[in-house]
Measured scan of single mutants.
Amino acid sequence: ENVFHPVECSYCHSESMMGFRYRCQQCHNYQLCQDCFWRGHAGGSHSNQHQMKEYTSWKS
C-alpha cells in the first residue's frame, strides 16, 4: 500500500511523496522520497554516508 507524505522531497522537490519517506538524521529537514533514496541522490550538504531513518507512515 502506498502512503502519502505531505512533505517535499529535498532532491526532486516532488510535493506528492508516495511510498516510503527517508529523513536524514544529520541534516536539518532533509527528506527524500523513495525513488530518490533508492537511486542514491544527495544534494546540498547532505551526504549518502549520513544515517537515514525510514518512515512507512506519515504519523511515524
Rank of each mutant, 00 (worst) to 15 (best):
Gly44Thr: 05
Phe4Glu: 13
His41Thr: 03
Asn2Trp: 04
Thr56Glu: 15
Lys59Gln: 14
Gly44Tyr: 03
Phe20Ala: 15
Gln25Tyr: 04
Lys53Cys: 07
Gln31Asp: 11
Thr56Lys: 13
Cys24Gln: 02
Ser47Asn: 12
Arg39Met: 09
Thr56Asn: 10
Tyr30Gln: 02
Glu15Pro: 14
Met18Thr: 13
Cys36Gln: 01
Gly19Thr: 07
His5Ser: 07
Ser57Trp: 06
His13Thr: 09
His28Arg: 11
His5Pro: 08
Ser45Gly: 14
Tyr11Met: 09
Gly43Phe: 02
Ser10Ile: 02
Cys27Lys: 01
Cys27Pro: 02
His13Cys: 06
Gln34Ala: 09
Phe20Thr: 14
Val7Gln: 11
Ser14Asn: 11
Val7Thr: 10
Cys24Gly: 01
Thr56Ile: 05
Gly43Arg: 03
Met18Glu: 14
Gly44Glu: 04
Asn29Phe: 11
Asn48Ser: 10
Asn2Arg: 08
Leu32Val: 08
Ser57Gln: 09
Cys36Asp: 01
Phe37Gly: 04
Ala42Gly: 10
Ser10Leu: 01
Met18Cys: 06
Glu1Tyr: 11
Phe20Trp: 14
His13Asn: 06
Ser16His: 06
His50Glu: 02
Phe4Ile: 15
Trp38Cys: 15
Val7Met: 09
His50Met: 02
Gly19Gln: 12
Gln25Met: 13
Cys33His: 01
Asn48Cys: 09
Met18Asn: 14
Cys9Pro: 00
Lys59His: 13
His50Lys: 03
Gly44Ser: 06
Gln26Trp: 02
Gly44Ile: 01
Asp35Thr: 12
Arg21Asp: 03
Gln26Ala: 11
Ser10Val: 01
Cys24Tyr: 00
Phe20Gly: 15
His41Glu: 08
Ser57Arg: 07
Asp35Ser: 10
His13Pro: 01
Cys27Asp: 01
Thr56His: 10
Phe4Gln: 07
Asn29Arg: 06
Tyr55Val: 15
Asp35Cys: 08
Arg21Tyr: 03
Met52Ala: 02
Lys59Arg: 11
Cys24Glu: 02
Asn48Asp: 10
Val3Ser: 14
His28Lys: 14
Ser60Ile: 02
Gly44Cys: 03
Asn48Ala: 11
Ser45Lys: 12
Tyr11Cys: 05
Ser16Leu: 12
Lys53Tyr: 05
Phe37Val: 10
Lys53His: 07
Glu8Gly: 12
His46Thr: 05
Glu8Met: 04
Ser45Asn: 07
Ser47Asp: 12
Val3Met: 13
Tyr55Arg: 08
Phe4Ala: 10
Pro6Lys: 10
Arg21His: 15
Tyr22Gly: 01
Gly40Tyr: 14
Tyr30Pro: 01
Tyr22Ser: 03
Ala42Arg: 10
Phe37Trp: 09
Asn29Cys: 15
Val7Asn: 14
Ser47Pro: 06
Gln26Thr: 11
Ser10Asn: 06
Tyr30Arg: 04
Pro6Ser: 10
Met52Cys: 06
Gly43Tyr: 04
Cys36Thr: 00
Gln34Trp: 02
Ser60Gly: 13
Ser16Glu: 10
Ser45Ala: 08
Cys36Ile: 01
Lys59Phe: 07
Phe20Met: 11
Thr56Gln: 12
His28Ser: 12
Cys33Asp: 00
Leu32Tyr: 03
Ser45Phe: 05
Ser16Ala: 10
Ala42Trp: 04
Asn29Gln: 14
Arg23Lys: 14
Glu15Gln: 13
His5Leu: 08
Gln49Ile: 06
His41Phe: 10
Glu15Leu: 09
Ser16Tyr: 04
His50Gln: 02
His13Tyr: 07
Ser14Trp: 03
Phe37Ala: 10
Asn48Pro: 14
Leu32Cys: 12
Ser57Ala: 13
Arg39Gln: 14
Lys53Ile: 08
Tyr55His: 07
Cys12Lys: 00
Trp58Asp: 15
Gln34Met: 04
Ser47Leu: 04
Asp35Ile: 08
Arg21Phe: 06
Ser57Asp: 13
Glu8Pro: 11
Met52Asn: 01
His5Met: 08
Glu54Thr: 15
Arg39Ile: 04
Cys9Ala: 00
Met18His: 15
Leu32Phe: 00
Gln34Val: 06
Trp38Arg: 15
Phe37Pro: 01
Met17Glu: 14
Ser45Leu: 07
Arg21Asn: 09
Leu32His: 04
Cys9Thr: 00
Trp58His: 14
His5Ile: 15
Arg39Gly: 11
Gly43Pro: 01
Asn29Ser: 09
Glu15Cys: 06
Val3Asp: 11
His5Gln: 06
Ser16Cys: 08
Gly19Leu: 07
Tyr30Ile: 02
His13Val: 03
Tyr11Trp: 07
Cys12Asn: 01
Gly40Ile: 05
Gln31His: 08
Ser47Tyr: 02
Pro6Ile: 10
Ser47Ala: 04
Phe20Ile: 13
Ala42Met: 10
Gly19His: 11
Gly43Ile: 01
Cys33Met: 01
Val7Lys: 09
Ser47Phe: 03
Ala42Pro: 03
Cys9Phe: 00
Ala42Phe: 13
Cys12Thr: 00
Cys33Ala: 02
Val7Leu: 10
Tyr22Asp: 01
Cys33Gln: 02
Gln49His: 07
Leu32Ile: 14
Met52Trp: 03
Cys27Gln: 00
Ser57Met: 12
Gly44His: 01
Lys59Pro: 10
Ser10Cys: 11
Gln49Arg: 12
Gly19Phe: 05
Tyr30Leu: 03
Met18Phe: 14
Leu32Arg: 01
Met18Ala: 15
Gln31Lys: 04
Cys36Pro: 02
His41Val: 14
Ser60Arg: 14
Gln51Ser: 13
His13Arg: 09
Trp38Tyr: 15
Glu1Thr: 07
Met18Ile: 10
Cys36Arg: 01
Tyr55Phe: 07
Leu32Ala: 01
Cys24Lys: 00
Gln49Gly: 14
Val3Gly: 05
Cys12Ala: 00
His46Met: 06
Cys24Ala: 01
Lys53Gly: 05
Pro6Val: 09
Arg21Met: 13
Phe20Lys: 15
Trp58Phe: 10
Cys27Ser: 01
Asn2Met: 13
Ser60Pro: 09
Val3Tyr: 12
Cys33Gly: 01
Gln34Tyr: 07
Val3Lys: 15
Gln25Asp: 08
Gly43Ala: 04
Gly40Cys: 05
Trp58Pro: 15
Gln25Val: 12
His46Ile: 03
Phe4Asp: 14
Ser10His: 15
Asp35Gly: 05
Cys36Met: 01
Arg23Val: 13
Asn48Ile: 06
Gly43Asp: 15
Cys9Leu: 00
His50Ile: 02
Gly44Phe: 00
